[in-house]
């Protein structure tokens, strides 16, 4: 079932991408881009990243592509703008592209991903980051939100395997046995083979700084883009 879904999304994503590369008409390119990006968001949902998939749909497909189409419409001179590509260039690019694809794919298939992961886990280098997808079925929005504020619920500072069955409860359940749990951990942590002290989310700056930078960046972009887009009009009026 999941294979079938993956196949559908993957073919749509790749086909859309090829369509973007091959078509000459800009608006058709935009259409294929929509197909490709929407399928990618489907892949995100399959990967248990609901929030990222929804963001992709809202910002990329619903926002950026509409912006692109808008740009096409504002900058066309004829009814169906098609800037022709030289066939020789296209062939050159395709050859280079296919060669590059071959390189990347051979890398992908050459690496033994699961083996590597097992090695890392065995060596204790991986502190099993919460394995968020096993219980929440992709409900990651809260954890992403807290991670942006610096509280990492996905990176508990103790082996997560010990309490897989616990802690599905609410807030209040969590508090009723919170005190017992705290006491237990204080004693039991020493003989645990991880070097952690208590089962708490890692609290630090997290992604707070990048988050703030991005928000300021967006503000700058908003002002800058509107300034760039309207600066020309003044010059025209003056001329």
């Amino acid at each position: 079932m999941e294979n079938l879904l993956f196949l559908i999304y993957a073919i749509a994503a790749c086909g859309g991408a090829v369509g973007v590369a091959l078509s000459q008409n800009v608006v058709r390119m935009a259409f294929w881009l929509v197909i490709s990006l929407a399928s990618v968001s489907g892949l995100f949902f399959m990967l248990g990243a609901d929030f990222v998939g929804a963001t992709q749909l809202l910002i990329y497909v619903g926002g950026t592509v509409v912006l692109l189409i808008f740009g096409v419409m504002l900058t066309t001179t004829g009814p169906y703008l098609a800037i022709k590509t030289n066939p020789a260039e296209m062939i050159q690019a395709s050859v280079v592209g296919v060669a590059f694809l071959g390189v990347v794919l051979s890398t992908v298939t050459a690496v033994d991903w699961s083996g590597n992961r097992a090695t890392l886990e065995h060596a204790g280098l991986v502190s099993r980051p919460g394995s968020y997808y096993q219980q929440g079925e992709g409900n990651t929005s809260r954890q992403i939100g807290t991670a942006l504020l610096g509280v990492r619920f996905d990176q508990m500072e103790q082996g997560a395997a010990a309490s897989d069955e616990a802690a599905h409860g609410h807030h209040h359940d969590g508090h009723t046995h919170a005190d017992h749990a705290h006491g237990n951990h204080a004693h039991g942590a020493a003989d645990h083979h991880h070097e952690t002290i208590s089962a708490s989310p890692r609290v630090g700056s997290g992604y707070l700084l990048p988050f703030e930078i991005v928000s300021v960046h967006l503000l700058v972009v908003l002002i800058g883009a509107s300034y760039l887009a309207r600066a020309k009009r003044r010059v025209e009026q003056a001329a």
Partner: peptide, 29 residues
């Protein structure tokens, strides 16, 4: 803060909920 369900995590939530729920929750508990 009381109404807000804390994230469902696979761990005991003792310190977590106090951090997430904000000042109002901390003052009431």
């Amino acid at each position: 803060g009381e109404r807000v369900p804390v994230p469902v995590v696979r761990q005991p939530i003792e310190t977590a909920s106090a951090v997430v729920d904000g000042p109002a929750a901390v003052t009431t508990e």
